[in-house]
């Protein structure tokens, strides 16, 4: 069975009628952590590090191109989360969005502080370097990528798996069906449902109007 529960919703917006359990759990978690940060409960910081640490480290490593620097900036980020905890309002932004915005700012500080180093013109560089060739703000694009990565982890596993097989392993829908033994029609449904769910989550996060 899918990890989906129906909730009461406006009749004119059927997409809003469904919210994954994981998403509602996230909302509840954000409220709890906001309360805990407000009263400076040290357990909140540990929980944030445990739940968001891998995501933040992945994002910061991609942004800085240096794992050690990313670990340093992660620590600075968590300290700032602790210092500014009382200002976190889960109504205005999700915890993930709020913490990632802090991480992004501290990563940009780190990049600005760097002394220019000799650059190997044939080296790959950071993802930020590569994103810089596009017109969009590369740090914003990277942040959006990792926000989506976070949302993918909140999809029902069977839907996230389909998307991963498609985009990470490069399989067609038919190949996914053959690989997994799941009927082709079910593969197609799960993939489009995953998109609908992601779209809804992005809307709620304010990334899509």
């Amino acid at each position: 069975m899918d990890i989906v529960e129906l909730t009461v919703a406006p009749a004119d917006d059927p997409v809003r009628s469904v919210m994954p359990r994981s998403q509602r759990a996230e909302t509840q978690r954000d409220r709890e952590l906001a309360d805990a940060l407000r009263v400076r409960d040290e357990g909140a910081l540990g929980r944030i590090q445990a739940e968001l640490g891998p995501l933040l480290l992945g994002y910061l490593t991609a942004m800085l191109g240096d794992r050690a620097a990313a670990e340093d900036v992660l620590q600075v980020t968590l300290l700032e989360v602790w210092d500014r905890g009382a200002s976190f309002d889960p109504v205005k932004a999700s915890l993930v969005t709020w913490v990632m915005m802090i991480a992004r700012s501290r990563a940009i500080d780190q990049l600005r502080r760097r002394v220019p180093e000799p650059h190997d013109p044939v080296s790959a560089g950071t993802q930020l370097d590569r994103a810089a060739v596009t017109e969009e703000d590369p740090s914003e694009a990277l942040l959006e990528q990792w926000r989506i990565a976070d949302l993918l982890t909140r999809l029902p596993a069977q839907e996230a798996t389909m998307l991963r097989l498609r985009f990470y392993d490069g399989l067609s829908q038919r190949e996914i069906a053959e690989r997994t033994g799941v009927p082709l029609g079910t593969v197609k449904m799960r993939m489009v449902h995953a998109l609908q769910r992601l779209h809804r989550m992005l809307e709620e996060a304010g990334s899509i109007r």
């Binding site: 891998p54 992945g58 490593t61 993802q127 989506i148 993918l152 982890t153 596993a157 996230a160 990470y168």
Partner: peptide, 18 residues
């Protein structure tokens, strides 16, 4: 989405649970 980001998704608890 970068391969690093997909790799992150694949390594999270619950990935591939079905």
């Amino acid at each position: 989405l970068s391969q690093d980001a997909w790799a992150f998704v694949a390594t999270q608890p619950g990935a591939d649970a079905a």
